[in-house]
């Protein structure tokens, strides 16, 4: 328990080890940000996650249990933000699991397994004097909030570029600070893609490390832009997961060294390990 509270890290400080069982925690608050819901939960026993790590979540009530309904398996969510004894998650309602989680009320029970996976590499050696460029699309902005907190605390700072479908979704931008925004319909900020903003930034000053999370086409565009300019990029990918801790081999994504389990060797992967960020079965 003591070790868990301090948080043992491995993988060059990019992984905080998870306690081996799921924990029953309590929802403290749910707040709506346009199309997204933020769930804040009390997690007194949980170790502090690294930016980019995720957790497997399941509601305690009305979630599988053998009585014949989806959702049955837990769902993966990036840690949006962590404070001592508290975690926040950002939800977009896209199906039965996210729908069930997005209707949880303060006091409701939630199963949490985590923090899981390998997060972003933000050590000074990783940045090597370059600036951090954070690129988020849609609900993929979630791990960038905790990343921005960390980069702000370390004094490194970050430039944040976010892309959304429309005004309802761009309300999520309020979760980060000093953001530049693009919307597909032009209702907020630049009309177009967040990768337009990224190209602009990289043309202005290519001495950057790019940290990105978003839908597969966005990540693929980021990968290509960065590869062309030889800018290092770390991409937080998504794939269908059943367990989150390497047990099922279900979440593999193709890399240059073959399939890797995204829950174990990711979800953050160096872009130069990928031939493509268009991972099969992910996204909507």
């Amino acid at each position: 328990m003591g070790a868990a509270a301090e948080g043992l890290t491995t993988d060059d400080g990019r992984r905080t080890l998870a306690p081996p069982g799921r924990r029953r925690v309590t929802v403290l608050a749910r707040q709506q940000f346009g199309a997204y819901a933020v769930l804040r939960v009390a997690d007194p026993g949980g170790p502090p996650p690294r930016p980019g790590q995720f957790a497997m979540l399941a509601a305690v009530e009305r979630w599988g249990g053998g009585d014949g309904e989806r959702p049955f398996l837990p769902r993966a969510f990036s840690v949006l933000r962590a404070r001592p004894g508290e975690l926040e998650f950002l939800l977009e309602d896209v199906g039965p699991g996210t729908n069930r989680l997005a209707e949880l009320e303060p006091g409701d029970g939630l199963w949490v397994l985590g923090p899981l996976g390998i997060g972003f590499g933000v050590a000074a050696s990783e940045l090597a004097g370059r600036r951090a460029l954070l690129v988020g699309g849609g609900v993929g902005i979630a791990p960038l909030a905790i990343l921005q907190d960390e980069l702000t605390a370390s004094g490194a700072g970050a430039t944040v570029l976010l892309g959304f479908r429309d005004g309802l979704h761009s309300a999520g931008a309020a979760l980060l600070r000093e953001t530049r925004i693009a919307t597909d319909d032009g209702s907020h900020g630049h009309e177009g893609l967040v990768t337009d903003l990224l190209a602009e930034e990289l043309d202005r000053d290519p001495a950057a490390v790019v940290y990105a999370c978003g839908p597969p086409p966005m990540l693929e565009a980021v990968r290509v832009l960065c590869a062309e300019r030889e800018v290092p990029a770390q991409l937080a990918l998504e794939s269908g997961m059943a367990c989150g801790f390497g047990a099922c081999f279900g979440c593999v994504v193709p890399t240059r060294d073959g399939y890797v389990r995204l829950c174990l060797d990711g979800p953050v992967l160096d872009a130069d390990r990928l031939d493509s960020a268009l991972t099969p079965g992910a996204g909507h």
Binding site: F72, C251, P280
Partner: peptide
């Protein structure tokens, strides 16, 4: 063996299909 190409998982009511 590399295993099958993804996607490898499909959730069912109260279960799972895997093609690992």
């Amino acid at each position: 063996r590399q295993g099958n190409p993804p996607p490898r998982l499909w959730e069912l009511p109260g279960g799972l299909i895997n093609s690992i």
